[in-house]
Amino acid sequence: MSYLLDANVFIQAKNLHYGLDFCPAFWEWLVDNHAAGKVASIDKVGDEIAAGDDELSIWARNHGNGLFTKTDASVAAKFGVVSTWITAQQYEPAAINTFLQVADFYLIAHALARGQTVVTHEVPANSAKRIKIPNVCIGLNLPFMTPYEMLRRERARFVLGKRP
C-alpha cells in the first residue's frame, strides 16, 4: 500500500504529536518509508509547508527530496473526475471555488492517478460550506485513513533507546 499525506499530517505532527525536537523517529520513519516507495505527498503540500518558515519547513527542505511529488499529465487527467464529482454535489459555489484552488484538490487527483491511499486528520462532515477530503474520497471510492491508522497498519515503532 502506498500513502499520500495531507499537509495536516505534517503540521499536526510538528505542533501536537511528534515534535521534531522530541520525536525524531517519526520524521525518520517518513523519510525511510518514502525511500521504500510507501509514503509521499505532493508539491502543493510542500508549498504550504515551505510557507511556514519554521522548523517544519527547514525539515522539508533538508529531507523532502522527492517526497513532494510534482503534478504530471497522469494527475492532470484526473482533475476532471474530481471537479465533476465536486460540482455535482450540494456544495456552495464558494466552497467549490476554494476547493478547486487548494492542495486538497491536487491531493485527491494524485491519489486517483496513482492508486494511493490518502492520509489526513480530516473527518467526513456534512457541510455545504466546506469540502472535506474524506467526503471526496468516499464519493470517488478512494481509500483514506488517519495517520494513526497508517502507522498501525505499517507497524511503525517509536521506541525509546537507553539514555547515554
Rank of each mutant, 00 (worst) to 15 (best):
I58V: 12
T84V: 05
Q89E: 12
A13Q: 08
F99C: 05
S41M: 04
C23A: 14
D47F: 12
L142R: 07
A35N: 10
I49M: 02
V102G: 03
V75Q: 01
L140R: 00
G37A: 09
E48S: 00
K132P: 03
S127Q: 15
A103N: 00
A51N: 07
A51M: 05
T69D: 04
A76L: 15
K44N: 13
V75S: 01
F26D: 07
A95Q: 03
D54I: 06
D104N: 09
A95F: 04
N126E: 15
D72R: 06
V9W: 02
Q90F: 11
Q89I: 05
E55G: 11
P93K: 11
D21F: 13
A94I: 10
A111R: 02
N8W: 07
E48Y: 01
K78L: 05
L30E: 01
W29C: 05
Y91W: 09
A73P: 01
C137M: 04
F79D: 01
R157C: 13
H110R: 08
F105T: 00
I42F: 02
A35V: 09
W85D: 03
A103R: 00
Q116R: 13
C23V: 11
A128D: 12
A25I: 10
A35H: 10
G19D: 08
G37D: 07
R114M: 06
R61Y: 13
P147A: 04
M1L: 14
A125V: 14
Q89G: 06
I133P: 00
G52A: 11
F22S: 12
A94W: 07
P164N: 10
S57T: 08
F105K: 00
Y148V: 14
Q90C: 10
D43C: 02
A113K: 05
S83K: 15
H121P: 03
V123S: 13
T98H: 11
W59N: 04
F79T: 01
R153A: 15
M145L: 13
A77Y: 04
T87K: 14
V102Q: 12
Y91N: 05
I108G: 00
T117M: 10
V75A: 02
P164W: 10
H17L: 15
Y91D: 03
Q101H: 14
Y148I: 13
Q101W: 05
D6Q: 07
Y91Q: 05
I133L: 09
